[in-house]
């Protein structure tokens, strides 16, 4: 782009990578050290026999924790805090769970089809009590396909920022500002992909992931509504307030 210099793109890429590493919740090395710790069969059964509402609450707590790190990530992206408050909220409300799903591939073991959850690596069967097998399968499939792209931390950081800064979210007040920021992030991502000598089609593959992420999040909302219809008091009194703000 004639309006953004290479130096600016390098700077943007560096800031976003740093922000990602400072807020990624677990370092890759930490996760690698824990990778041999899978839940034993009796532990799996104990999750499966939890009441549905207890498992929902546990997952809501874990999601909320992960989202708090995403909020910190957003705050450190150059330009995010210059957006108006309405737009900061809109972007986080729509995109924070999407970033959690993107980040999940760092905590995912493709060989065993397990994800780091509540202290150990868990397969899809651990989440049976939620009563959302189809959504869980889709989330695991998404993590597996993200893993197959073998993104480096800086690529993952820039893709997360690109997802968060989506300029097509409803209710943005200063759409043009967000568009500019997203465009700059996309150029920085492109720049890093070139620098890392990644294959030509990777950016397109990543663009395809955006629609998969939207579908996962809308299905999460549907499942939550169905759950809330049966357990309105549980959501109202036992779910983390931030979770309710974002998805309520």
């Amino acid at each position: 782009s004639p309006t953004v210099s290479m130096a600016e793109l390098d700077h943007q890429a560096q800031i976003i990578s740093k922000s990602h590493l400072e807020t990624c919740q677990y370092l890759r090395e930490e996760l690698q050290q824990m990778s041999w710790q899978n839940f034993l069969q009796d532990e799996v059964e104990s999750y499966q026999s939890k009441p549905r509402e207890v498992m929902w609450q546990l997952c809501a707590v874990k999601i909320t924790e992960a989202i708090q790190y995403v909020v910190e990530f957003a705050k450190r992206i150059d330009g995010f805090m210059d957006l108006c408050q309405n737009d900061q909220i809109v972007l986080l409300k729509a995109g924070s769970l999407e970033v959690v799903f993107v980040r999940m591939c760092r905590m995912f073991d493709s060989q065993n089809n397990t994800v780091y959850f509540d202290g150990k690596f868990a397969g899809p069967d651990v989440f049976k009590a939620l009563g959302c097998d189809d959504l869980i399968t889709s989330v695991f499939d998404f993590a597996k396909s993200m893993c197959s792209l073998h993104l480096s931390e800086d690529e993952l950081a820039l893709f997360s920022a690109f997802v968060l800064l989506s300029a097509d979210r409803s209710w943005l007040q200063e759409k043009l500002q967000v568009e500019k920021l997203q465009q700059k992030t996309q150029l920085a991502l492109q720049h890093v992909l070139q620098k890392n000598q990644r294959e030509d089609g990777l950016l397109n593959k990543l663009r395809c992931k955006v629609s998969a992420l939207r579908s996962l999040c809308s299905r999460h909302t549907e499942k939550l509504s169905a759950f809330r219809a049966v357990y309105p008091d549980i959501v109202g009194t036992h779910f983390p307030p931030l979770y309710k703000e974002l998805f309520g």
């Binding site: 909020v71 910190e72 805090m81 703000e245």
Partner: peptide, 16 residues
């Protein structure tokens, strides 16, 4: 604003 009180608060807290 009241609807997103916690998010506002998290955004306003300085980064540590």
């Amino acid at each position: 604003k009241e609807k997103h009180k916690i998010l506002h608060q998290l955004l306003q807290n300085s980064t540590s």
